[in-house]
Simulated scan of single mutants.
Amino acid sequence: MHNTIAASTHRIATPHGTLHAQCWQPATAKLPFSAMPILLLHDSLGCVALWRDFPALLAEQTGHPVIAYDRLGFGQSDARDDRLELDFIATEAVEYFPLLQAHFGFARCIVMGHSVGGGMAVYCAAMHPDSCAALITESAQAFVEDRTRSGIALARTQFRQPDAMQRLARYHGDKAKWVVDAWTETWLAPDFADWSLAAVLPQVRCPTLVIHGTEDEYGTKRHPQQIAAGVQARAELHLMPGIRHVPHREQDVTVARMIRHFLRHPSPGNPPPPDIFRYP
């Protein structure tokens, strides 16, 4: 743990079960938040623990508190045994964002999502414009692309190997099979093939940072391009050469610096300096 960052654990009651959350608090910020928190939304196989050291690094680099939570059915949140509805991405913003806001007591936040969490973050910014001061997407899907489906189909095959499921169970316990099925069976379902962010992107009116790796195995650069072009606000797009689907793990310091620069320079015409793309 970074020495200047204090971490706290939270349990949040919802009508459908209890959520597990953590908050990383910089020494310069105090509760109630003197700086807007950054709210992290995880990917389809993710959870708080799988963000690893990135939330603490992000809090240290930006000076903002960072909040991450396990969606219902993931990580240390309560289990669920139902299938995901096809509107589950929008539902996360409608049902759970207000509960997180009420629990942590922030008036406004910076909402950031990785992969499918990026789509959820888009919906949060669109549906709660008074509560979302900025939007950050990382490796987010904007629609269902052939590359997306191919990557997920390959992953489904790989998870038939016992060791792969055992590794996932370290983070999700007995919920691991549900987590994999919720991801693969939803995204590969014929009824989900027409899903996209096209209708909701124009409702986003806060500054937006879009991060995507050029070698992302679940989506080409069309996804970040559509997100950046679709929002009705200043959008900053960073394609990271040679990076795959998890930029915050592959180049954590670089990603944290991008976010820091974006938050400190909200006006257009302020490209990040070259040293952002180098480690110290």
Score class of each variant (00 low, 15 high):
141 Q>H: 10
116 V>K: 01
109 C>Q: 08
167 R>F: 00
108 R>H: 06
185 E>Q: 15
111 V>G: 06
171 Y>P: 07
122 V>M: 01
183 W>L: 15
180 V>T: 11
134 A>P: 01
140 A>G: 07
169 A>D: 05
117 G>S: 04
157 T>D: 10
181 D>R: 14
126 A>D: 08
108 R>N: 05
128 H>C: 06
183 W>G: 10
133 A>I: 04
155 A>F: 11
138 E>L: 09
123 Y>C: 13
128 H>F: 04
147 R>T: 10
167 R>D: 07
174 D>V: 06
110 I>H: 04
165 M>V: 07
156 R>H: 10
121 A>D: 09
163 D>H: 14
179 V>A: 01
181 D>S: 13
151 G>M: 05
133 A>L: 07
181 D>F: 01
121 A>T: 11
120 M>W: 01
140 A>T: 12
177 K>C: 04
111 V>W: 02
113 G>F: 02
129 P>M: 02
173 G>Q: 01
169 A>H: 05
153 A>G: 13
186 T>D: 00
134 A>E: 00
154 L>P: 02
106 F>L: 07
146 D>Q: 15
106 F>T: 12
112 M>E: 08
122 V>D: 01
169 A>I: 07
113 G>V: 08
177 K>P: 00
124 C>M: 14
163 D>T: 15
116 V>G: 02
163 D>A: 13
185 E>R: 15
173 G>I: 06
175 K>V: 03
132 C>R: 03
177 K>Q: 14
135 L>M: 05
184 T>P: 00
114 H>M: 01
150 S>A: 15
137 T>C: 00
145 E>R: 10
155 A>R: 14
159 F>T: 14
165 M>T: 04
143 F>H: 11
169 A>N: 08
126 A>F: 08
125 A>G: 12
152 I>G: 12
183 W>I: 13
112 M>S: 13
180 V>C: 02
174 D>H: 05
152 I>R: 09
149 R>L: 04
156 R>F: 05
153 A>S: 14
177 K>G: 02
154 L>W: 09
143 F>N: 09
119 G>T: 09
109 C>Y: 06
106 F>R: 06
127 M>Y: 09
115 S>G: 08
133 A>Q: 14
128 H>V: 09
142 A>N: 10
164 A>S: 12
181 D>L: 10
106 F>Q: 09
146 D>N: 15
120 M>A: 14
124 C>G: 06
149 R>E: 04
127 M>D: 12
181 D>I: 11
156 R>P: 01
114 H>G: 06
168 L>G: 08
152 I>E: 04
182 A>P: 06
186 T>R: 04
116 V>N: 05
123 Y>R: 14
177 K>R: 12
108 R>C: 05
159 F>H: 14
119 G>Q: 02
150 S>G: 11
154 L>S: 13
181 D>P: 04
173 G>R: 06
186 T>K: 00
125 A>C: 09
158 Q>E: 11
181 D>M: 08
